[in-house]
């Protein structure tokens, strides 16, 4: 089935709109207007069960941190295996659509673990991370990664690989690896900041 010109451009335009919105949000007046109002929400996060547990029991916080890292490892494995296949570096003798479909399922589980444990950790240190620019960079990278994965990469890989432009698939693979590496690196850097 050939890739529809219309659907491809629809996604491209949606992605461009999201990027434009993000740039406007970052550099326009929206960020400075919304930012002060978010403080109340972050203060509330610390009063939730997650916040109280995270702040009271250091061991619980550290344990959840470790689970977060394990989720990251599984997510990274899925990204590297499937993007390595797109780049022609890994598992080249394995059926591509099976690989993409199966790694996607594990990816979704890993992402769910990451988000759940991430929310827990954020609640424990909410008023600290609110003031950390690197936290907001991580959130931007995470949103970009999720949007990219589910609205660009995943629909694209529903098609047979030989129907797609090889340059495009390789660019998608590189972008995917970079965006998730960015999410992980900015997340690690939160620990060094503040």
């Amino acid at each position: 089935m050939p890739v529809s010109f219309f659907s491809t451009w629809t996604r491209t335009l949606m992605a461009a709109a999201v990027i434009a919105l993000a740039v406007w949000g970052l550099y326009g007046n929206m960020a400075s207007a919304v930012y002060p109002f978010l403080l109340g929400f972050f203060e509330w996060m610390e009063t939730t069960w997650f916040g109280v547990i995270g702040k009271t029991w250091g061991a619980a916080f550290a344990f959840v941190e470790a689970i977060h890292l394990l989720g990251l490892a599984v997510l990274g494995g899925c990204v590297i295996a499937s993007d390595g296949r797109l780049l022609g570096l890994l598992l080249t003798d394995v059926d591509a659509s099976t690989l993409f479909d199966r790694t996607h399922r594990v990816f979704v589980w890993a992402l769910s673990v990451l988000i759940f444990t991430g929310v827990f950790m954020a609640c424990g240190v909410a008023t600290k991370i609110y003031y950390l620019p690197v936290y907001w960079f991580k959130m931007l990278a995470l949103i970009a990664g999720i949007l990219f994965h589910f609205f660009i990469r995943r629909p694209l890989l529903q098609h047979e690989l030989d129907e797609l432009n090889p340059v495009v698939t390789k660019l998608v693979a590189v972008a995917s690896i970079l965006v998730w590496l960015m999410v992980a690196a900015t997340g690690r850097w939160i620990g060094f900041s503040g």
């Binding site: 890292l69 394990l70 990251l72 490892a73 599984v74 997510l75 990274g76 494995g77 899925c78 990204v79 590297i80 295996a81 598992l91 394995v94 059926d95 099976t98 690989l99 199966r102 790694t103 399922r105 594990v106 998730w180 590496l181 992980a184 690196a185 690690r188 850097w189």
Partner: peptide
Amino acid sequence: ESTHVLTLMLSLGMLFLIDLRMLGYALPEV
């Protein structure tokens, strides 16, 4: 330290995929 942690994605990522395959939770057709 960041490199030590981020290489988890490569080392444990690959290992966990193999382990999960053995347990039948990942890539069972491969």
